[in-house]
Amino acid sequence: MVFAALSLFAGAALVWLSLWLKLRSDQCLHWPSVTGRITESRVDDEHLEMMKPILRYHYEVGGQIYVGFRASFSGYGVSRTAMDAVVKPYDQGRMVRVYYNPRNPASAVLDNTAQSDWLYWFMFGVGFFILAAYLTLR
């Protein structure tokens, strides 16, 4: 019964995450934009098991300076090649268009047209729901 409850919880969390990603991905298509500057763009591979793309940019909205880190609401994969592809278009010092959430300017992306990987997470969540049902009914 514990595994069924954990599967149900995992399924709910993943479905919630997928819906949040879908909503944000759709919303950012309509976000206003400002010009920003890339301040850091690299792949952190110091510890290969924790390798990740590092992207930071500064932008100003309403006289306040913000620091962003998200290229888009899409995932980036786990290979070095996939992570290099995330940071490659954003050389350090480059001026870029930053799309920000008008309700929360601290939330921003550089690519507002990239499709999120929400369906991937949704399917995993549904899989956990099915597992929870199986464990409960057997």
Results as ranks from 00 to 15, higher is better:
N101G: 09
I130E: 01
G63E: 04
F3V: 09
R80M: 08
R138W: 10
P53L: 11
L17P: 08
S18P: 13
S33W: 00
Q64A: 13
K88G: 03
W31S: 03
A106D: 12
A108Y: 03
L135P: 06
R42L: 07
V86G: 12
T39F: 00
W31F: 08
T81C: 09
Y120G: 09
W20D: 13
T35N: 02
V15C: 13
A13D: 03
Y134E: 00
F124K: 05
A82Q: 12
T136C: 01
Y90C: 13
T113Q: 15
V109E: 07
Y57Q: 06
E49T: 11
A85N: 00
Y57N: 04
F124E: 07
V2C: 09
S72G: 03
G63H: 05
R42D: 02
E46Q: 03
V86A: 10
S25M: 02
M123C: 08
R94K: 15
V87R: 12
L21E: 06
L131K: 11
G36A: 03
S7E: 00
L48E: 10
L137I: 15
R37K: 12
W118M: 00
K22Q: 14
L19I: 12
A108M: 07
K52R: 14
T35P: 04
Y76L: 01
Q27I: 04
S7Y: 08
V78T: 15
W31D: 05
P102K: 07
E60H: 05
I54W: 06
P105I: 03
R37W: 08
V67E: 08
T39C: 07
F3L: 14
M95Y: 13
N101P: 10
L19C: 03
A5L: 13
Y76F: 11
R42E: 08
A82M: 12
V78Y: 05
C28Q: 11
Y90M: 11
S72N: 08
T39L: 05
A13E: 01
G68W: 08
V2P: 04
A10I: 03
M95Q: 14
G77M: 12
Y76A: 03
A132Q: 00
P105G: 02
A12D: 02
Y59D: 02
F129N: 01
I65E: 15
R42W: 00
I65M: 02
V109W: 05
Y120V: 14
F9I: 15
R80L: 08
H47Y: 04
I38A: 07
L29G: 09
W121D: 03
Y99A: 06
A13H: 05
S79F: 10
S74Y: 00
R94H: 04
A132D: 01
R80S: 01
